[in-house]
Design a protein around this nucleic acid. Structure first.
Lengths: 227, 227
DNA sequence: TTAGCGGTGTAGGAACTTCCTACAGCAGTG
DNA sequence: CACTGCTGTAGGAAGTTCCTACACCGCTAA
């Protein structure tokens, strides 16, 4: 079976040139968060999960064998604190990119300490998932990410919504109510393909990549205008 | 354009008969968990998010207007405890199904208290996401779910893996490594459609519904056999 | 004032996924 | 021996993501 390897190939579809696989290790106490985060993260096919554990010591034990390029670790672990573990990990492998997840928004004082320790970024549990994901991909090649770790309430998407054209909003609303594309097309009197085009443009404008994002956003937008 | 409404239609695809929309309200302090859980939950298109909040009082204020059928609420809220809020909510609307998310596994004593209070199910943050989702759908019509709130380590999927046939395991492994279907087909010398069939059967056997579940499972299986 | 630029409405193609059906062979079992 | 169920194989229908195309319209800068 020497078979059919396409030569350039690698990862199917088109893949940004320099992007190597992101080898991820996750240390997080609670399964629920770990799982649901991983589902999000593994949606991106350049990510490979090379290990996970619930405690700091388990992490340190496994880290040398797993050879991750990024470590995603909670600040508050059952047995230790993430910063300490991260420091140990960095002592062994300085090229590791560490993303710390803190329970609360970080003060700039804390942030300075973290950066000093060689941590590449910090995301608080009060931030949206996409923020975490974005950060994860940002730091993967060793860059430091000091993004909006200060809050920034979230006008981003709301503003973006303003930028939708009339037709785009119609489609966004209908899609959020889970009407199948065919029915949306029928209702608007255009072809399915056109509806898809709208969807694509909406995604670009709002920065989404998958339908559930749009649905969550729109459903929040509907009940949550009052939020 | 009176257009093309298919008559029976409703929700596209085929929809289990009695299944009405699940109107969901979520009360959860941290955005990260709330978001990533919602992305999972909204994958199921019978779910409609009718509201969410971070605190107990906000929940009580909005609950009457949102008219959810299911309330997903954390046990430990910043301002209150979930049980109390749930009791208030149930006093107003006894037909509400409440699913409580506890930080730690619940003892049977606690469980009794919860059930007494009219809560339909409890899921701990140490359980896998699918457990939460399953529970959510289970209680949606008012049933009580006392599933395996005791742990049950997780042999379920592992056992299921044993049940895969040789060819199925091959495919599962290749898919987990993110090889595109076409390449898998080439490598195994069969048609793409056949590979899809394997995938379908794997999903049925392991109880999965989406590719990321398989990927997470297999990647855990690979590094984590030693877990 | 005209040429160019960007946004909007429209649509098609390629590749892939999910869901469902079909069927032949083999193995076990009543 | 016939029936049942699992395994390997494959096709169809519909939906999704990603990308390209193009006409029209209005604004701006030469």
């Amino acid at each position: 079976m020497s078979s059919i390897e396409s030569p350039s190939a690698g990862q199917g579809r088109l893949m940004a040139s320099g992007q190597r696989r992101l080898r991820l290790y996750v240390t997080m106490g609670q399964r629920l968060l770990r799982d649901s985060l991983l589902f999000q993260i593994l949606l991106h096919d350049e990510v490979e999960l090379v290990g996970e554990s619930e405690t700091g010591v388990a992490t340190l034990n496994r880290l040398k064998r797993a050879t991750p390029s990024v470590l995603l670790i909670e600040e508050n672990l059952q047995d230790n604190d993430g910063l300490t573990i991260a420091e140990h990990a960095l002592a062994v492998n300085p090229s590791l990119s560490v993303l710390l997840i803190s329970d609360t928004p970080v003060s700039s004082g804390r942030m300075a300490i973290y950066l000093e320790a060689g941590i590449k970024a910090v995301v608080s549990k009060d931030q949206p998932v996409q923020e975490l994901i974005k950060t994860l991909f940002y730091i993967r090649n060793g860059q430091v990410y000091v993004g909006n770790w200060q809050q920034e309430p979230a006008p981003a998407a709301m503003l973006a919504y303003q930028a939708l054209s009339g037709r785009e909003r119609e489609v966004a609303q209908l899609m959020a109510s889970r009407l199948p594309v065919r029915d949306i097309a029928g209702r608007l009197g255009v072809s399915c393909k056109t509806v898809h085009s709208y969807k694509d443009r909406i995604f670009v404008k709002l920065g989404f990549e998958r339908l559930p994002e749009l649905i969550l956003f729109m459903q929040r937008h509907q009940h949550g205008a009052a939020e």
